[in-house]
Amino acid sequence: SQLLVSEPAPLRAAPEPATPDSDLKTLLTLCDLLNRELLVMIGWAKHIPGFTGLSLVDQMALLQSGWMETLVLNVVWRSQGSADELQFAENLRLSESQCRAAGLHDLYTALRHLSSKYQQMGLNQEEVLTLKAMALANSDAENVEGAEAVQRFQDGLHEALQDYESSQRPSEPHRAGRLLMTLPLLRQTALRAVRCFSRLHTDGRVPMHKLFLEMLDAKI
């Protein structure tokens, strides 16, 4: 319930009106959107029950290792209503050919694979919000200072998921486990997303915001 309350309103893409449509414009618009989502995510993280109880260093460690998984869940959740597009925002939907043209084809296949998996499962909002928080709590960050505090943070979210599933879906006793069993694919998808944007950056194809680059840097 706390995650439902603290869920930020979805952001809209902000394409430059004066710039003619092009693959570069798609990338610029996408990178700007993702950077703003990242900013919002950092504020959102503080509302996850238990997060601010962690040390500042551990808060950074979890965000540095889990941020792309949380961004991926945002996109995948928004894309649930579509069979073949990626909906990064209400006003930014990309088809496979648009992704390919922008150098995002690998990202497209990875995100669509995860999106269709959650579509088959009938993922709902409560579940995706809990998974987003878990992506941070379970991000296997290195050099954690307060391992016990992080473990309690994880256990709290795991308990919330189990309580939710047992009360809302009593006829599906394996549901919570099945959701947890999607986390490895989420991790793999996020790593492919990191590689894709890192490649775009090293190729100099699109300027990226400092925060986005700092967080990309933390993942490599």
């Binding site: 900013l39 950092i42 504020g43 500042l56 540095q64 400092k210 925060l211 700092e214």
Partner: peptide, 15 residues
């Protein structure tokens, strides 16, 4: 080194 990061500032002064 971590202290100079944007993330550190954002977490510290609460957006």
């Amino acid at each position: 080194q971590e202290k100079h990061k944007i993330l550190h500032k954002l977490l510290q002064n609460g957006n």
